[in-house]
């Protein structure tokens, strides 16, 4: 067990390094020159080729990508000085660089933006797990009934509507036109937790409700399969009640694949809920990354979001593997 965790952690580390390097390299080798926006925004004097070259040199863009990546990684461990154009910034470890746009420390900005993303991911997940799994179980218990068929076709309709459209409509009608959710957005949790909650309620509900049909269908499928298994017949033959058979014996077995899928989905959500954050105007990881891709591109921010995303996904994968062993005694890890 311990050996397994160590091996998985090492391979996870490799995945994270590779992901961050890939972004770094793509950015470096891409068609855009990171120094250009810095040169343009210098204000006053025009951006001359000489000036551009000087800025490139100051930013270390003239060096090979491997060297630049090495500098970046060293900064995470020990901190470093970052020069952009004429300005030099002192960046403490763990240093993810200085954002080209805001000229703030990426690490500090990350700390501020990670909280709303986590809150939305957790809130949304709770909503879609509760709704999706409950509805899925009910449909499986009454499979073939009118309610079951309505669920299956209804969930197909909901999941074929683009998510950003649902977000947009919810924001337009529930926040702008009516006062049902008047204050949507992120308010720092350290100041007024109640306001944080009410501000994120709509985004979480929208994210959760839009994702719940997928979970309902998946749960229903798993439950229907499980309820046809021999041990369910055994449970009934013992004289157990319908609810015990369904929720204890049935759900216990159907839960394993659901938890697996959930773990992976949750990791992806933590890496940034792009549409939700963008439309509801929440400064989270997703929106941050989206802005960093749009011109002018912001390499340090982009690298940071990819790094955080990779870490979340790798960790959730690891947790899924460990939880799987706990849930299914047949695959206990040796």
């Amino acid at each position: 067990m311990f050996g397994f965790v160590v091996r998985r952690l090492l391979s996870s580390l490799l995945v994270i390094l590779l992901a961050s390097f890939a972004v770094f390299a793509l950015f470096y080798l891409g068609p855009n020159n990171p120094a250009q926006p810095v040169c343009d925004s210098a204000g006053g004097s025009r951006c001359t080729p000489e000036r551009l070259e000087a800025i490139e040199k100051s930013m270390g863009l003239d060096k090979p990508v491997v060297v630049a990546y090495g500098t970046f990684m060293k900064g995470i461990v020990a901190g470093r000085e970052v020069t952009i154009g004429a300005a030099t910034y002192d960046c403490d470890a763990p240093c993810l660089g200085i954002a080209y746009g805001s000229r703030g420390e990426v690490t500090e900005e990350l700390k501020g933006r990670i909280v709303p993303t986590i809150l939305i991911a957790v809130g949304g997940s709770i909503v879609y797990l509760v709704i999706g799994v409950t509805v899925g179980i009910m449909a499986a218990a009454r499979r073939g009934s009118l309610g079951d068929r309505l669920l299956v076709s209804g969930s197909l309709i909901v999941s074929s509507i683009p998510y950003y459209l649902i977000c947009l409509l919810a924001w337009l009608y529930l926040t702008l036109k009516t006062d049902i959710f008047p204050e949507t957005g992120y308010f720092p949790i350290t100041e007024d937790p109640l306001k944080t909650f009410s501000g994120l309620l709509l985004p979480c509900l929208v994210l959760g409700i839009a994702s719940s049909p997928v979970y309902a269908r998946y749960t229903r499928g798993q439950m229907v399969e499980t309820l046809g298994d021999d041990y369910i017949r055994t449970a009934r033959a013992k004289g157990l009640g319908g609810r015990t058979v369904l929720l204890k014996h049935g759900l216990r077995a159907a839960m394993v694949p659901i938890v697996t899928i959930f773990g992976l989905d949750f990791g992806i959500l933590l890496a940034g809920t792009v549409f939700t954050e963008k439309i509801f105007g929440i400064d989270g990881i997703g929106r941050w990354g989206l802005d960093a891709i749009s011109a002018p591109q912001d390499l340090p921010v982009l690298t940071a979001t990819v790094l955080v995303g990779a870490i979340f996904i790798v960790i959730s994968n690891l947790i899924v593997d460990l939880v799987y062993g706990a849930l299914d005694p047949r695959v206990r890890l040796g």
Binding site: A237, A253, P329
Partner: peptide
């Protein structure tokens, strides 16, 4: 009725199934 039936199942009358690996719950 299902309720009366349940009282009987596994109590007055019990059943043994053929493939015990499939008929026992794998997670309990």
């Amino acid at each position: 009725s299902e309720g009366k039936m349940r009282e009987m199942r596994g109590n007055k009358a019990a059943m043994i199934f053929q493939d015990a690996l499939a008929a026992l719950h794998p997670f309990f």
